[in-house]
Design a binder for these strands. Structure first.
Lengths: 226, 226
DNA sequence: ATTAAAATTTAGGCAAATCTAAAAATTTGT
DNA sequence: ACAAATTTTTAGATTTGCCTAAATTTTAAT
């Protein structure tokens, strides 16, 4: 009994935003947080929350914030699946760079057609991660975060592979391009400067100094898994 | 100076409809005709026409019907280009059948990204016709109708290739599938039954009897070109 | 524990796109 | 040509999603 298909674009965007905010803090999502992320007013958020609540997509008690119901979560995962699959398509098939995909995927994620998205999944050979290293939910909403660590938090001499970015803004991604940092690169952490937290790393053979902010937005998968 | 990018989905749908209606009769398009095709009310059409008129997309004089301006035509061709390219994509890359593509393409045609559509064009190797044999406008809106004739109107013994359908409803297309009629088939017209206008044709070697209605919705390209 | 600050909701409005019903203009039939 | 039929437009409502401003509830500070 999914009325998933009756959802408006705006409803879908709210559900997606609530999902993303809910991931971070485990608790209820604040009205203001939603408003800020969506660049809208808190009063508009309240209106929409009521509507979503009536459709059983969110749990809501006045002044207490919202959380997604299981139906809401399922819906969010469906939208995220579409978003990320389209991102892979844009990069793999249409030669978009990873900093160009988000805006277009924001539009494409609202296209309604199960057959379309499942065929796209097949065309792309069922990718498990999007161009920023984020996991792609499968048809049933199942997905697992990849085991990974922020580069800023691993001990000296850690060796691993760059598998994702925390900030996927175009600005940051272009910075990475300019410095030759890409997913799949081998990285080893040589030295940490205590003064400002910057790191000396070796990346695909080259030596590079990166600031703490940069390191705090790069994920690596280390080799010391069990 | 194209505000093409500021158009709403609804505006785009009106422009597209006016374009299609304008192709048939050369004259102005009637409010009622638009309303009927769009399954909306004439009063809604009038409202929208005024809006489009203010945006310089249509020529409008009260009670006199509408026609597209050159900006409106350019806009329409852009939307049709997108629609048809997406249809090719769905058939060629995602294994949709020709009767399944329209509904999804109706959604995809509204995605805004020049880079997306031009890359898609390249991925598909710059196709000139969509899965129903309709021409795809190029980047600048240029396209030429293919030289073709309705099967119902060619003389006996005409030989040609099936290159398009007039009616591209799922019902008709599925009928063609069931009878093994597809674009690219060799067709020769053997006999015309005067009583009901039905035809005996040979299609890719097989003999087939088709009604007048069917023949009046199939285009062939004959070999007797200059 | 009160009060000040912050967050949230309510109330009332607006614009887009639609509708119904009624009025106006055009077209048609004789 | 002129009344009747048809088409088109206007007027006034409705719904969705948003807004501002004011009221309410919660949280934080002393």
């Amino acid at each position: 009994m999914h009325k998933l298909y009756l959802m408006t674009r705006s409803e879908e965007n709210y559900i997606k935003t609530i999902f993303h905010l809910g991931r971070k803090g485990t608790q209820e999502v604040a009205t203001n947080a939603i408003a800020e992320l969506m660049e809208t007013k808190p009063s508009s958020v309240t209106d929409m929350i009521k509507k979503l609540s009536e459709k059983n997509l969110v749990n809501y008690k006045r002044y207490q914030g919202v959380s997604l119901t299981s139906l809401g979560t399922k819906t969010a995962l469906g939208i995220i699946r579409k978003h990320r699959l389209w991102e892979v398509f844009l990069v793999e098939k249409l030669d978009f760079s990873w900093d160009e995909v988000h805006e277009v995927a924001e539009q494409l994620e609202h296209i309604k057609s199960d057959k379309l998205i499942d065929s796209l999944d097949r065309l792309l050979a069922f990718p498990k991660f999007d161009p920023h290293g984020d996991p792609i939910p499968d048809k049933n909403g199942g997905f697992k975060e990849r085991d990974r660590d922020l580069l800023s938090e691993v001990p000296i001499n850690t060796v691993g592979v760059c598998v994702g970015v925390k900030d996927s803004s175009a600005t940051f991604l272009k910075f990475l391009d300019k410095n030759g940092i890409a997913l799949g690169n081998q990285i080893s952490v040589k030295e940490r400067e205590e003064f400002d937290g910057s790191l000396n790393i070796e990346i695909d053979g080259r030596n590079l100094q990166i600031s703490h902010v940069i390191a705090a937005n790069l994920y690596i998968k280390t080799n010391d898994e069990i």
